[in-house]
Design a protein around this nucleic acid. Structure first.
Lengths: 212, 212
DNA sequence: TAGATTGTTAATCGATTAACAATC
DNA sequence: TAGATTGTTAATCGATTAACAATC
């Protein structure tokens, strides 16, 4: 099977968003040079990316069908299916994610929040109920949930992750700044704000230095 | 000057976090093979990364001084300075970021929120006041603010980004799912949840496929 | 037809990994 | 001393870019 690099995988949702805008405007076909201009990638890269997930060929002079592209990318990304996830840690960030409507159209449905704070358990956040973290084993068994969204304090992140893995979690979407070690067979994806800020800051400082 | 790749830059905050944990435990020296085992990188890569930001050499058999490493990385990442930023869009995610205390120790201080919603203007979120987005030009001029955190709805993201750039913003930390075009001289860093989820989902599906 | 765009194959580029002498 | 670890130089690997014939 073809392997997809992390960078490449990250580009597909960006293509998809752009194609949906085109669709909304009524554009029927789109060529790679045009995509390249709009998104700032090279046209060769775009061709390779789209070929990798397309079930049909592009047409010289016309490009590719926007509808088909959307179809293909949505299927590839799994937006057509429905994956359930639990969110662990209903602090500010956790609550924001529970309130975020965008996950639905990505095929991800965060069905429940979990917390250790007695003051939060039983409440509702973003129309999702907050359960006791101690109920995680039974809830994970009941639902067919493979993914947990980790928004607990960094100090307990590894411990909670281990607990979730023990309950059967196979994918961990880690929003904490903690580095999490996971066993083979478990996938971890980090949304690390410190890392992101490091890139922004450094690029900014480069520009400033160049200016003087 | 040495160039730092995006991947490399993203690793430094992860090193830093690990070294601070070591420091808290009282560990004085750390070697790259040990870091490699803890964080899952190769030891050669770690040596290169640390050499690139260190002002002193490591010592065979001992490794490097944890204190010095923390010093060097914090200086490199700009955690010792103080950068001001404005946050645009005080919805759920924006509010979560205004409430997040971690940015302070990264040298970033989000001093104000801005919104177009009359119901939010004048309120306080995370002890930061929410101002009218129309006051952005005067506020940006008053403060020496180069960075804006973009947490507005995707539908207005490009428009608000353009507006902020017009007010003098040089760095945009984009938390919206929108693709933002910026002119030369402006740096954009995207925190794209859809991209992150795409990676998680795909890696997860790979594992599942391998299992059967 | 002419020419824009495709898909494929080869070249380049850059990052990671391997090898190894130097050294505390 | 012996050996773990360093820093450097070379090899490998993979992704991006370039080149170009095929084609609608």
């Amino acid at each position: 099977m073809r392997v997809f690099s992390k960078n490449q995988l990250q580009r597909y949702p960006i293509y998809l968003k752009f194609f949906k805008e085109l669709q909304a405007e009524g554009t029927e076909n789109i060529s790679s040079p045009k995509i390249a201009r709009a998104l700032g990638y090279s046209e060769e890269q775009i061709r390779k990316d789209l070929q990798a997930v397309s079930d049909s060929a592009g047409r010289p002079k016309k490009g590719r069908s926007v509808d088909k592209l959307i179809d293909n990318i949505e299927s590839f990304l799994g937006y057509r299916g429905k994956t359930e996830a639990f969110l662990l840690g209903t602090g500010h960030l956790g609550a924001a994610l529970l309130n975020y409507p965008g996950f639905q159209e990505m095929g991800l449905s965060i069905t429940e929040g979990f917390d250790a704070d007695i003051g939060k358990i039983g409440k509702t956040v973003g129309s999702k109920s907050v359960l006791d973290i101690r109920d995680l084993p039974t809830e994970m068994a009941k639902r067919h949930c493979r993914i947990v969204v980790l928004t607990v304090p960094a100090s307990v992140a590894q411990k909670v992750a281990d607990f979730a893995i023990g309950c059967g979690a196979l994918g961990i979407w880690n929003f904490t700044p903690a580095h999490i070690n996971v066993p083979d067979g478990v996938v971890i994806e980090n949304v690390n704000l410190a890392s992101s800020l490091a890139v922004l800051n450094h690029r900014l400082n480069e520009k400033m230095a160049k200016r003087h």
